[in-house]
Design a protein around this nucleic acid. Structure first.
Length: 271
DNA sequence: TTCCAGGCGTATC
DNA sequence: GATACGCATGGA
């Protein structure tokens, strides 16, 4: 990774980064493709327009971005401190992961806000990505940005009706209540051993193993968290009936993203 | 129209 | 602890 300031923009050089594979792969729901090589979205409530200006070279323009904002927000959000080339080398000791990494080598794990990730993945359950984006769009539109749990303190299942989130509204209300009361402290959860962190998150109604692991992986950067959804169930049955290979240790969740993307786009091939 | 979506709560065994 | 079923909503 390196970067330079160019007028009001930051020019970022980062191999192992592809916008579609990272911003439109179901880990974050607030990025919109506004041109063939451009996305617009947010880290919490900081806006960014990012354009890939050299696909082969891995060069990106972060439009109208101060150097301090790049260093304080986007460097972390885009996980630029992680060496994905090295990770993919390690994963590629496994034959299936080697194919998955080669198929979509531009995947990165975004470091999202913990509350945004938890609430987004509560909304995601038994739902499809366009509608998840619609619900979150109505939420952020209503509040003028992604609302904190404090801002949501007075919402009820009924008052959240405008989201049209169905049965998930009561789950959001429960999560808000447990966080605002101090019963659930996401900052503390992030540091717990994985099983304890999962258990703590699952005290919220509507949070099961899958949502808990997504909140940990995408919202607390716990790369050891391994969300198992319907696609990963198929992947595990097909490729890893005896468990994950040792080469992913500590980065099970990162490996999961490559496998998720790979199997979702090769649903019926027997690889 | 019918099926299904990055699951989970509940009832039942 | 395992398994079946309903759930709000809307895209395909």
């Amino acid at each position: 990774m390196d970067y330079k300031v160019s007028g009001r923009d930051i020019i970022l050089h980062q191999p192992d980064f592809q916008l579609d594979e990272t911003l439109d792969c179901g880990q974050a729901f607030r990025w919109t493709k506004t041109a063939p090589d451009t996305y617009e979205g947010y880290c919490l409530n900081t806006f960014l327009r990012i354009t890939c200006i050299d696909e082969r070279g891995g060069v990106f323009r972060l439009e109208n971005t101060q150097e301090s904002v790049f260093n304080e927000i986007w460097y972390d959000y885009l996980d630029l401190s992680e060496d994905y080339s090295e990770l993919k080398r390690r994963f590629s000791e496994d034959a299936t992961l080697a194919k998955a990494c080669a198929y979509a080598g531009g995947i990165r794990i975004l470091r999202q806000d913990s509350w945004e990730a938890l609430s987004s993945f509560i909304i995601s359950q038994n739902n499809n990505i366009p509608r998840i984006k619609g619900i979150i769009g109505r939420l952020t539109g209503h509040y003028g940005g992604y609302p904190s749990s404090a801002q949501l303190a007075f919402e009820t299942e009924e008052s959240l009706g405008f989201l049209r989130s169905g049965f998930r509204a009561k789950y959001l209300v429960d999560a808000v209540s447990k966080i605002n009361s101090g019963e659930l402290d996401l900052g503390a959860v992030a540091k717990l051993p994985l099983a304890d962190a999962e258990k703590a998150l699952m005290t919220v109604k509507g949070v099961g193993p899958k949502v808990a692991m997504c909140a940990l992986l995408f919202g607390m950067h716990r790369t050891d968290a391994f969300p198992v959804d319907v696609w990963m169930k198929r992947a595990l049955e097909r490729w890893y009936p005896n468990g994950l290979p040792d080469c992913v240790k500590g980065y099970e969740g990162t490996a999961q993203q490559y496998l998720f993307h790979y199997i979702r786009n090769h649903p019926q091939e027997d690889m």
